[in-house]
């Protein structure tokens, strides 16, 4: 029992309207994982460094461990569960991560995918440098980033109607 009243929040998550009563102190990441059972966004560092909890809110990237659910009242939230195409096929980014081996353990992957989605919406054909700067808030301890960059380049090429050509190393 808490002496603080719960308050209603109403938001759209992956295209579906959801309404819940939450304690004001409920972090968005806990709301997504525990109230909605959307466990794609991960809890990594809990200190807004690692980016594993990254989701898209109204077209922008946010670390959902550093935001209260009440702040998302009225917003549209997309998590990795909402990334695949409507017909069930993989989003170009998911396909890119698969084809280019953009993951090893996979822990950072949902955050990487959701950050890369917004990056490509803001800059559809980024250079390698722009990709690296754009994913600077997402840490990966396995890959060394090389294949993540290639995966995003693969997706950018596909979304621009080109076939990805890996640069000679």
């Amino acid at each position: 029992m808490s002496e603080i009243d719960t308050i209603p929040v109403s938001l759209t998550v992956n295209g579906r309207k959801v309404q819940r009563f939450v304690e004001p102190r409920t972090l968005l990441i806990h709301f997504l994982r525990e109230e909605l059972n959307l466990t794609g966004a991960h809890i990594g560092c809990e200190t807004s460094h690692c980016g594993a909890c990254t989701v898209e809110i109204d077209g922008a990237s946010v670390k959902s461990c550093t935001m209260f659910a009440v702040q998302a009242n009225g917003a549209s939230v997309t998590t990795v569960e909402g990334l695949a195409n409507a017909d069930g096929t993989l989003h170009a980014l998911q396909e890119g991560f698969r084809q280019m081996h953009g993951l090893q353990c996979g822990f950072c992957t949902p955050g990487m995918l959701m950050r890369a989605k917004v990056l490509l919406s803001e800059n559809p054909d980024p250079t390698e440098e722009e990709i690296r700067f754009g994913i600077a808030g997402n840490l990966c301890r396995c890959t060394g980033y090389q294949n993540i960059v290639k995966a995003i380049q693969y997706a950018a090429a596909k979304l621009n109607g080109r076939t990805y050509q890996e640069a000679a190393e």
Binding site: I57, G134, G137
Partner: peptide, 9 residues
């Protein structure tokens, strides 16, 4: 300052 996600907020 910080990174893209943090600059959103």
């Amino acid at each position: 300052i910080a990174d893209p996600q943090i600059r959103t907020k």
